[in-house]
Design a protein around this nucleic acid. Structure first.
Lengths: 213, 213
DNA sequence: ACCTGAACACCGTTCAAGT
DNA sequence: ACCTGAACACCGTTCAAGT
């Protein structure tokens, strides 16, 4: 008797939200939550129940792309040496960042709003403030303030990178003191608009720094 | 008869705004304009006349630090080879980014809001939308869409970097195909909170990529 | 079980009116 | 000449009330 079927309208709402969001992102890269709700023809509450954070929504929007990207890493490793595979994979990421204008940008931490208090006397103040769902690509759990031990769960993208790095380490062609977190930090430049024409070139520099001398 | 003295209250307002902003930035890294005006005890209009954009305000807040940073480049070059000088200079930048939490972050493009229209029937709609003053550090004039020719006026920081790069090029120790824009893009990682413990290490990787093999 | 939309607490920015 | 602050057009997020 468990596993009750979700209502049909609920399902269609969810997919419509994602579709609309994807479409809006081709134009705006900003993605105002209110705008998504309006464009999808649902109340804000519906939007928020389905996607408690903007990250959650973006994760869903780009899920297929991220999976493709992740899946390509072992495929490239099967046919090329690690350095070449890494290079090709990074080019894929760059292309992806190019096309999906603002994906990486949209997934950025969203800054402030975590000061807990605001000291507001009037109003609601009930649930937890928000709480960062896992981002689809790059930069997981900042754990603000203290450097977290166990360092790095960086999500599926991070695992793909680690696979490429490990292969290079085994070959002796990539530095052993580099992990996915380092690479993700370096890749952050792709989210900047100034990276437009230079992505390839900067990737050259990065890759050069990752190789053993 | 030109050069009329500015009113005393105007002057004190301006310096108070900057002081207050600097202080707020030690706590928040967010810097809401309204909050600055309130804390400084001035109307929003006064704030905006003095600093038409958030960048303009931040530039003023960090002017002294930026100048120090820029001035240190030739000093380092006088006493060390180019690679060492660059390395030390980058360490300085990292320290700076560490202490002034959110400087680089605060100076980021601020994303969207440039779609000109919004198609709003009611309301004002008068002056130009905004217009990006020059940032104090990193990433000048995106010129969204087209890769601008003449590539790179990257401000004083960019010039300091170019000086360091040129020295290395002359020595034959730094790659000739790298410019300040590349380095600024790579340095962007410093603005991410995840860079906290790893800044030095990632700088190692970057520097390695900049050296001739 | 799911939905809507008013309501709250914020933003940035402008501009009429004051001194 | 400079200032204030109300006002406008947005945000994100929550929650009472509906179906």
């Amino acid at each position: 008797m468990a596993e009750r079927r979700t209502r049909a309208d609920a399902v269609s709402n969810r997919v419509r939200i994602v579709e609309v969001a994807r479409e809006l992102l081709t134009t705006t890269s900003d993605l105002a939550m209110n705008a998504v709700a309006k464009a999808a023809g649902v109340g804000q509450g519906t939007l928020y129940r389905n996607f408690p954070t903007r990250e959650a929504l973006l994760t869903e929007v780009y899920r297929a792309d991220v999976e493709r990207l992740v899946a390509s890493a072992p495929e490239l490793l099967a046919e090329h040496d690690a350095v070449t595979a890494l290079r090709m994979w990074l080019d894929n990421v760059a292309d992806y960042a190019q096309v999906k204008r603002g994906v990486l940008a949209a997934l950025e931490p969203a800054s402030g709003h975590d000061l807990a208090g605001r000291a507001g006397p009037p109003g609601r103040r009930s649930g937890p403030v928000a709480g960062h769902a896992e981002p689809a690509v790059g930069h997981a759990e900042p754990a603000v303030g203290h450097a977290d031990p166990t360092a790095g769960h960086t999500g599926p993208i991070g695992e793909a990178i680690d696979r490429l790095l490990a292969a290079g380490r085994d070959e002796g062609t990539l530095r052993a003191d580099v992990d996915a977190g380092d690479v993700l930090l370096l890749l952050g430049f792709l989210s900047r608009p100034e990276a437009a024409g230079r992505a390839r070139h900067v990737l050259d520099l990065i890759l050069d720094g990752l190789r053993v001398r």
